[in-house]
């Protein structure tokens, strides 16, 4: 599946930028135009810290074709220290060390190569610390 190319210009993928609601303080990642909690349309842009913990995870053994050379790999739901949540692939970690509650550090990595020309796509991954 080809990711729309505009995502290469979206800062949250590279700088972990999120939107903090000015009304209810809920943090949306990625940023939204409407707060899902209180419907406010006013936000502050914040940069998430690179620290978080694993809320749940899986080990992907059968992937879509684009990731098949990377299996098996871990993917986890991460809660950052600000309380924002995101999904990230696990990097630089033994599979048996991935567990609910483990602390992680978010890092900048290449995620995948796309299309016939193999365009590099970057983003964040999580390392268990």
């Amino acid at each position: 599946m080809i990711t729309p190319k505009y995502v290469r210009e979206i800062p949250q993928r590279y700088r972990l930028e999120a939107a903090k609601c000015k009304n209810c303080s809920y943090i949306s990642f990625p940023p939204r135009l409407v707060c899902p909690k209180c419907k406010s349309r006013s936000f502050d842009t914040i940069r998430l810290s690179d620290e978080g913990k694993i809320l749940t995870f899986t080990i992907i053994r059968v992937s879509s074709d684009i990731f098949s050379h990377q299996t098996p790999y871990g993917v986890a739901v991460i809660e950052t220290s600000e309380g924002a949540k995101l999904m990230a692939m696990i990097a630089d970690t033994k599979i048996e060390d991935i567990a609910i509650g483990k602390k992680v550090k978010l890092i900048f990595r290449k995620i995948r190569d796309e299309g016939v020309s193999g365009i590099h796509c970057y983003g964040y991954k999580a390392v268990v610390i």
Partner: peptide, 14 residues
């Protein structure tokens, strides 16, 4: 979500 779930390698069984 293509951009924030599937982009990061998740599948439906996942």
């Amino acid at each position: 979500d293509q951009e924030y779930e599937v982009y990061n390698g998740i599948t439906f069984p996942g």
